[in-house]
Design a binder for these strands. Structure first.
Lengths: 116, 116
DNA sequence: TGGCTAATTGGTAATATAGCCAAGTAATGA
DNA sequence: TCATTACTTGGCTATATTACCAATTAGCCA
């Protein structure tokens, strides 16, 4: 078991790198932004209007995702246009949806069986 | 723009639900656990040995993932055996790896061009 | 140049997360 | 029944994240 622990330590860096990217996805507003960027690029002002938060808040969400390599930005005139750099992330959402549905189903089963 | 903001509010709950699941993935130790559970079920004691943290810490990581519907548990005798409930999550990791590689590549390009 | 708009950055307070230790629960078997 | 093992839960501190406001930067054009 000492051996296995060393195995974890060796892999640790890699899991940290993975977790960094996943953390950059783990916020409702950022998921909303990703969905919007999956359709077309948007400037910060458009996203800010849709979300209804402070510009600085939206800008910071975008910079978190940019640092993680999920989106890229392009300054054109006064505006900065963001686009989705890694569309394969969208495939993942299908799996998340499945997990949500599964959870809802089980919750209903529990309710039916009178356990909650 | 008011219209769009309302659209976000309506979807908000759904994005919160998605984010909950993704948050449950967003930790190096939990990613390690998912990889181990993708091979076979494990009891808490096995995972604790591999990870080298306190049992309570590992137990809490598992309960975060269980609440999110990612893993399921089965108590048999003294031990509790955990297994991966949503294997489709593994597909996602390919996309994360691609993002990591892409990031590394760009970093190298920057270094070559003398910009860092 | 000066004023305007779009976006980013710094500061700060509120909240959430992670880890360990200690205490509690549950199954087993002497 | 009592001790042991496996796990969970509560309590606590340290750290990270989020959101807003204020200040700053950058591009545009009169």
């Amino acid at each position: 078991m000492k051996k296995k622990q060393i195995a974890f330590e060796k892999l640790q860096d890699h899991y940290v790198a993975r977790a960094e990217i996943i953390k950059a996805l783990a916020h409702p507003t950022r998921l909303f932004i990703i969905d919007r960027l999956s359709e077309r690029e948007h400037c910060v002002c458009e996203l800010t209007d849709m979300i209804g938060a402070d510009t600085s808040t939206v800008s910071k969400h975008l910079s978190v995702m940019k640092n993680a390599g999920i989106v890229s930005s392009d300054k054109r005139g006064l505006q900065v246009w963001y686009s989705l750099k890694v569309p394969c992330i969208l495939n993942f959402f299908g799996c998340i949806e499945e997990t949500i549905r599964q959870g809802a189903r089980e919750h209903m089963d529990l309710a039916k069986s009178g356990k909650c």
